[in-house]
Design a protein around this nucleic acid. Structure first.
Lengths: 157, 157
DNA sequence: GTATGTGCAAAGTATTTGCCCCAGA
DNA sequence: TCTGGGGCAAATACTTTGCACATAC
């Protein structure tokens, strides 16, 4: 269970400027630049994928941080719009860094837990626009997850 | 929080035959026709909407049942395919009765928790078929939830 | 009569909070 | 120095399990 296929790594030099940028934004909301914050952002950026709260506090780079610290940071980041919360399959508490042009929908294997990206963004954008224009909803985002059995598990079974 | 706009009520006479039908299917798997089972199915059918486990055990009709009983039943119903589990926005543990021609996607208000149906089924069906045909995944389903601010909450704020 | 279901209580896990000291600005 | 952050432990919430008795069949 709980393997992650996709982990799209961001090059070191890019990563630094992205993090500085995010921290600069956060400082305007009164947050301070602390070690824990940097570690968290670094971790979420390096492996740019959805994390469960519980696993975040155990990922290398954060394993020595108190869970409460990680939870509190994540909540602030969420309020600030820096991370988004998503539901994948049966769990509702995944968090992922919000990067421009990096919104993705997911495909989960029920057997092995693999998470794969599926870009269907464009289709749903038009639905969001319609909901907004015709029904008056605002600030729309979406969470989409497909669940199924992956080719590997089909082969094994 | 946690209002539900949509509650599509099923007429009494239809409801009985649907429930009998489901119970008949369940009995083939070794389950027995008990009061608790009937109450649960009746409740989930009467208000045909996604329920959180925690709220199910408090809904009129089930409020005197032990949570453990409701949880155990739901799990069996899920294994039997009678209910499906879905992720709506930030929660991953909603359960809803699987009725033919009743699969829907949802729109949630972040402010008041209202759940509204959005039929975008047809769009995603084609994506599922593509994932299956081109990438070898099987048994595909999906959970789609839009999150936003509903017109009412926009007006209040 | 036998296997399954149920209530109650306890255990397990996940998440949130209080408090006090530490650190960033 | 002043306010936000972090560690630790306790509290809360959510879910699962064990066990003894009740019920379906």
């Amino acid at each position: 269970m709980s393997e992650h296929s996709h982990d799209c790594h961001i090059p070191e030099e890019e990563s630094e400027s992205i993090i500085d940028n995010i921290i600069e934004r956060l400082r305007k909301t009164g947050m301070r630049k602390t070690e824990a914050l940097e570690e968290l952002l670094q971790t979420m950026l390096t492996h740019h994928r959805p994390f469960l709260l519980t696993e975040l506090a155990e990922v290398p780079g954060l394993e020595d941080r108190d869970q409460a610290t990680v939870y509190r940071l994540i909540m602030k980041l969420k309020d600030a719009g820096v991370v988004r919360q998503l539901s994948l399959g049966e769990k509702g508490n995944y968090f992922q860094l919000n990067l421009a042009n990096h919104h993705h929908d997911y495909l989960l294997c029920r057997e092995c837990g693999t998470v794969t990206e599926v870009p269907v963004e464009c289709i749903l954008k038009s639905v969001e626009e319609k909901l907004s224009a015709q029904h008056g909803w605002k600030h729309l985002t979406h969470s989409l997850a497909f669940q199924g059995t992956c080719p590997d598990c089909l082969a094994t079974a």
